[in-house]
Amino acid sequence: MPLLTIFTAPKPFTNPHIAMIQRNALRSWLALGEEVEVLVIGEEEGLAETAAELGIRHLPQVERSAYGTPLVSSMFALARHSNAPLLCCVNADIILTSDILNAGRNLLATRQRFLVVGQRWDLDVDEPLDFSAGWQERLRERVRHEGKLHKATGSDYFLFPRECFNDIPAFAIGRAGWDNWMIYAGRSQGFPVVDASKDVFIVHQNHDYSHLPGGQPHYKHPETLENVRLAGGRRTIFELSDVSHHLVNGKLVRPPFSWRRFWREVEIFPLIKLHSYPLAVGLYFLLHPRKAYREYREGRL
């Protein structure tokens, strides 16, 4: 039985660059060895052929939004067909290393519930990558010279025990909002939400947005607005700075104290402890009156 099932809903393999970077990502996950099972979900063009070629388990039937986008809730339900104790939802352009296995194994030894998230490194990749012996070291060296650490906003991977996240709203995958909700949901359910950026090295292969309507980033897509609505509103849009723990050298540690973090914890207290959105909005008005009034006028509270 594998320790970890990695699952994803790739984009169509029709764009040559998107197809290439997705194949790189899938091959990196397979290169992690027998402890990992890879699961691809959906019926996007070229997916069945790629899964067959790489020997990856493929589940084509996934529920979709009105726009035809796979739903996160359906993806998570399908991933539970695996018997692995750990699940990891990952964007299909992300290269993973053995760090993800080490983090999951260490945490699973002491915790029954947790969520691991983290920052990515961005890298321009224009060629199929070599995953022969030593590939992780070569990749780290390349990223050190050519890569750029992405800002600490959402996350591109979500590692958790299979007992967690049984009730997911019908978010559209690949649109903003749902990844932020995962951090909020973990905090509100009281288990460790862990920023593993220091211990888990992942690489995002840069790409354009030609696969989206108008070539616009997903932040501007109508499904992003729907994701935020399903999340419960903008106050549930948490970032990596809102985690409860960091993973450092395999150990859980609390984030260092700062006044900024203190006041942020005060701000989110009604959400994660009292589970009251109206109280959270009221406190937001008290702490950020100008921003809150502007968002109220724009209908974004």
Results as ranks from 00 to 15, higher is better:
residue 5 T to L: 10
residue 7 F to M: 04
residue 10 P to F: 06
residue 10 P to N: 08
residue 10 P to S: 07
residue 10 P to Q: 07
residue 22 Q to S: 09
residue 23 R to V: 01
residue 25 A to E: 01
residue 25 A to D: 00
residue 34 E to C: 02
residue 36 V to E: 08
residue 40 V to M: 09
residue 48 A to G: 15
residue 49 E to S: 10
residue 50 T to C: 15
residue 50 T to L: 15
residue 52 A to G: 00
residue 52 A to Q: 14
residue 53 E to W: 06
residue 57 R to Q: 12
residue 62 V to H: 03
residue 62 V to I: 15
residue 65 S to Y: 05
residue 66 A to W: 08
residue 71 L to Y: 00
residue 74 S to I: 04
residue 76 F to Q: 07
residue 81 H to N: 14
residue 101 L to F: 03
residue 102 N to W: 02
residue 105 R to T: 05
residue 105 R to L: 09
residue 106 N to M: 13
residue 113 R to Y: 02
residue 115 L to P: 10
residue 124 D to N: 10
residue 127 E to N: 08
residue 128 P to G: 06
residue 130 D to V: 07
residue 134 G to H: 05
residue 135 W to I: 05
residue 145 H to P: 00
residue 147 G to T: 11
residue 150 H to R: 12
residue 151 K to G: 08
residue 155 S to G: 04
residue 156 D to F: 04
residue 159 L to I: 04
residue 161 P to D: 09
residue 166 N to R: 14
residue 168 I to W: 07
residue 173 I to T: 13
residue 173 I to C: 09
residue 179 D to F: 03
residue 179 D to T: 07
residue 183 I to H: 02
residue 184 Y to K: 04
residue 190 G to W: 02
residue 196 A to Y: 05
residue 199 D to F: 12
residue 200 V to C: 13
residue 201 F to Y: 00
residue 203 V to G: 04
residue 206 N to L: 14
residue 206 N to C: 03
residue 209 Y to V: 02
residue 212 L to W: 01
residue 219 Y to S: 13
residue 220 K to G: 00
residue 223 E to C: 03
residue 228 V to Q: 10
residue 230 L to I: 09
residue 231 A to Y: 03
residue 233 G to N: 06
residue 235 R to T: 03
residue 239 E to M: 14
residue 241 S to T: 12
residue 251 K to L: 09
residue 258 S to Y: 06
residue 259 W to L: 15
residue 261 R to N: 05
residue 267 E to L: 14
residue 268 I to L: 07
residue 273 K to N: 14
residue 277 Y to F: 13
residue 282 G to P: 00
residue 282 G to E: 11
residue 288 H to W: 01
residue 290 R to Y: 05
residue 290 R to S: 14
residue 295 E to H: 10
